[in-house]
Amino acid sequence: MIQDARIVAGFTGAGISTESGIPDFRSPDSPWMRHKPISFDLFLQSADARREAWRRKFAMDDLYRGARPSLGHLGFASLVAAGRMPAVITQNIDGLHQESGLDPDQVIELHGNGTYAKCLACGGRHELDWVRRCFDADREPPDCRMCGGILKAATISFGQAMPEGPMRRAQKLTASCDLFMVAGSSLVVYPAAAFPAFAKENGARLVIVNREPTPLDGAADLVIHAEIGSVLSVFVS
């Protein structure tokens, strides 16, 4: 099926990173449930909430500091390198697609990126090592070094608007592809999960690789319930 495709759109969710040691948010006893993200509105309104948000962020980072790209990530990277897949659309925030060898412009991050911080006022990027040194020194997150604004991990929090640029890029890729390949997404988180359905409605073939059934299995041209890495390893070069 991939051999016949002109443009393949990749779409990944938490399942591709569980094989790297990062549990799904909904997994039983997930550490995410012990360090639940702070809502965007509360983050903006409360200095206490911002302190707690950064504490939880660094606690999670410590748990998964050794995570490395899985065979699934490497399979997608090989498809991109071969010119079969222009970019990967991802719901993940772990940066493992970039670590697998993809350039940042080859990864469309719908939910942002947790490997650095951004200023909510000017958009300036700040590296987490510096933010953490400041936080550990006096238990207060630093302000933006450029404008004095509030710093936040560069992820999309609950209640925060989806990023317009990545959403437009994802829509454009979805509209242009003739094969849409989902790997490791439960396809229940919207609006991100709307892209596979849009691709199918636009005439593309839909392939879903996931350990568990998804709401779109019935509409897919091919469904594989298996470990992501074991399926996508055939593309690793």
Results as ranks from 00 to 15, higher is better:
1 M>L: 09
4 D>L: 09
9 A>E: 09
11 F>M: 05
11 F>V: 01
13 G>F: 06
13 G>N: 03
13 G>M: 12
14 A>Q: 15
17 S>W: 08
18 T>S: 02
19 E>L: 07
19 E>Q: 12
22 I>K: 00
22 I>D: 07
24 D>E: 07
26 R>P: 12
26 R>D: 00
28 P>E: 08
32 W>Y: 07
35 H>A: 15
36 K>Q: 15
37 P>Y: 09
41 D>V: 14
41 D>F: 14
42 L>G: 11
43 F>V: 10
45 Q>R: 11
46 S>H: 03
48 D>P: 03
48 D>C: 08
49 A>I: 02
50 R>E: 11
52 E>C: 01
52 E>S: 00
61 D>S: 12
61 D>H: 03
65 R>P: 08
68 R>G: 03
70 S>M: 10
73 H>D: 05
74 L>N: 04
75 G>R: 01
75 G>M: 05
77 A>M: 06
79 L>V: 04
82 A>P: 08
89 I>N: 05
95 G>C: 02
97 H>G: 07
97 H>K: 05
101 G>L: 04
101 G>M: 04
101 G>W: 04
103 D>N: 11
105 D>L: 09
105 D>T: 00
106 Q>N: 13
106 Q>D: 11
112 G>L: 04
114 G>L: 05
116 Y>W: 07
117 A>D: 06
120 L>T: 10
121 A>E: 13
122 C>F: 12
124 G>E: 15
124 G>L: 07
124 G>C: 08
125 R>N: 09
125 R>S: 10
126 H>R: 03
127 E>L: 08
127 E>G: 06
129 D>Q: 08
130 W>R: 09
132 R>M: 00
136 D>V: 02
137 A>Y: 06
138 D>V: 12
139 R>Y: 07
141 P>E: 00
142 P>L: 01
142 P>A: 02
144 C>W: 01
145 R>F: 12
145 R>K: 14
146 M>V: 13
147 C>F: 10
147 C>L: 02
149 G>Q: 04
149 G>H: 08
157 S>T: 00
158 F>N: 02
160 Q>C: 09
161 A>C: 09
167 M>P: 13
168 R>L: 12
169 R>G: 10
169 R>Q: 14
170 A>H: 15
170 A>T: 12
172 K>N: 15
176 S>F: 09
176 S>D: 15
179 L>T: 13
179 L>M: 15
180 F>P: 02
187 L>R: 02
188 V>A: 14
190 Y>H: 11
195 F>M: 09
197 A>K: 10
198 F>G: 04
199 A>I: 05
199 A>R: 05
200 K>A: 06
201 E>P: 11
202 N>T: 05
206 L>S: 06
208 I>V: 11
209 V>N: 03
211 R>Y: 07
212 E>M: 14
214 T>K: 00
215 P>T: 04
216 L>T: 03
216 L>V: 01
217 D>H: 11
219 A>M: 10
225 H>W: 13
226 A>W: 12
228 I>C: 04
228 I>G: 03
229 G>N: 04
231 V>Y: 11
232 L>H: 03
233 S>L: 13
233 S>A: 12
234 V>N: 08
235 F>G: 10
236 V>A: 01
236 V>M: 00
